[in-house]
Amino acid sequence: MFELTMAKGSILQGVLEAILDLVNVANVDCSSKGFSLQALDTEHVVFLSLFFPSEVFRSYRCDEDCSMGIAIADMVDLLRASNDGDIITIKVTDQNFEDITITFESPDKTKTTDMDLQLVDARSHRLKISEWHDMESEYQAIFCMPSAQFMLNCKSLSVIDDDVVIRVNEEVISFSTKGKSGCVNISHVPNKTDNPEKASVTLTHMRGPVSLTLNLRYMKSCAKVSTLFDQVKIGLSTKLPLMVECKIAEKGYIRYFVAPKITE
């Protein structure tokens, strides 16, 4: 059996809302330590991988490792029907591995709403990329910045054009774009430390200058999720997709892998 409970408006609900513009269906792997979710956007530009550790929930139970496909958009629609203060339970029993049961319980426990959501096939949403994020050394540059700043950069640039060029070297981290109506260049002078301060831009890893061109539509999606957290970590390499990561509690994470634009 798999069962978790959370309060309405918890971080899981926030994340599911924020990934909706990219993801319809996701594959979820559950274990006693927590659950991971992988999803690929329909255009194959972004791969999303997240791990929610069990300790971020009010209660969490998973008797046996299991894997299920979930229609995220439908699930979010159901979760939106909950009321303030409700306790939300998500449950899958071994007897019925076709549905996921979602229950809302009102704070005074006088009202309970049960809903069943059918599980779907999401095997195509797996990608064997788990090794990427274990290879920090493969990224040419990794920096951290306040997620609100990251969102602001993406928004400011998207006024001018659809693409952003992110350049990183020892001295400067820049976000720039050039369009028909003009150009924008936002430069940050980074701190260099292993312990990034929450309010500053920090270069944590640097093996050489690197620049990547990315579609701002996808970057804005990453930024949307990141604003649920204080800081965002961004890894660049010419040989790997861009990585955007936020930490969920001690051991959890949400990572976006974004394919860059390339010159053909």
């Binding site: 690929l40 990608l127 990329i129 579609n215 394919a259 860059p260 634009k261 390339i262 053909e264």
Partner: peptide
Amino acid sequence: NKHQADLEKFYNNR
């Protein structure tokens, strides 16, 4: 002239 890379192809071409 930049074109959007496909994530799977990008990964396979590493």
